[in-house]
Design a binder for these strands. Structure first.
Lengths: 157, 157
DNA sequence: CTCGATGCAAACAGTTTGCACGATT
DNA sequence: AATCGTGCAAACTGTTTGCATCGAG
């Protein structure tokens, strides 16, 4: 189903940009990945598929995918920026386990609603929001204290 | 008041680290800044004060300040990581205006509570959470649509 | 036919690291 | 005295950019 491609194409046209096979391949690759991905993984996948696409093109395409609503930044850990496709999915937030790196996706309508209320209170028009919780998942919470105490870099959201 | 210094010192001792004048000066500088700051600003301030402190030392000290609960990452926009001191302050979240860069700090107890509930639901033990909302502040929301349409990099949270 | 898009490699910016020296415990 | 911390400069890493070429509209 290339419904999303049609949308992306419309976005490109609207912006006066061209619709190239590279862009299409990147779009497809992104949606062929199930979870979160970073540029390097995407590059690797495209390389596997022998679609000779350069990193530069990927870097240049990502903002377009974001602006067209296809993907968004999911989370960051130091220099590692990870994305996820959102087109056609419902919004969710993340819990990231500092112990094992596990990512739990969750959503709470009440929280969303309260955020909107907050925005209204401040006369703020939201485009996007991101909620990330760092901590320990069920498995890791036993070992918790110990593993933090001897300073290593924490995982971020 | 060097209450925080006492705490920081205790943290260092606990970690078997030394308590150097550089670390102290950095701590002081951080708390002498009112708002958000990045490494470069901190470096500039320290340089102004003629405390000959290198960037390297700042980079090496920041994780210590974070782990000791003195500061936290406040927000990020591309490569720019900004911190804020949190020791002695109450927690808050951010709204960032994509138009003018304005940052609104807010807090909603109900949201916090619902987050904790979510964590309990997933057996997750939270350490920290971060909620950021991107959008347009009151002033900018009039011009909104127009300014996004011709693709520039969006400000992140 | 005309711009925008691509690949490549060089340039960048923020951050990290190896080393020799100096300071804290 | 034994480490740990510091400054410096070099190294790194992820990302961006200039340029010549290619191709979509």
């Amino acid at each position: 189903m290339d419904y999303r491609y049609r949308i992306f194409k419309a976005f490109l046209k609207f912006r006066g940009l061209k619709c190239t096979p590279e862009r299409r391949r990147i779009l497809d690759a992104v949606f062929s990945l199930e979870g979160h991905f970073d540029v390097e993984e995407l590059y690797g996948l495209l390389r596997e598929k022998r679609s000779g696409i350069s990193r530069a093109t990927i870097y240049r395409t990502i903002p377009l995918l974001i602006e067209s609503g296809m993907i968004r930044e999911a989370l960051r850990c130091r220099k590692n920026v990870r994305y996820e496709h959102i087109f056609g999915h419902k919004h969710h937030d993340h819990m990231v386990c500092v112990g094992c790196g596990k990512v739990i996706e969750f959503k709470d309508d009440k929280i969303e609603e309260l955020q909107d209320r907050m925005c209204r209170l401040y006369g703020f028009t939201p485009i996007e929001h991101r909620l990330g919780i760092r901590g320990y998942c069920k498995k890791c919470s036993g070992l918790a204290k110990r593993s933090v105490s001897r300073g290593k870099r924490a995982v971020n959201t």
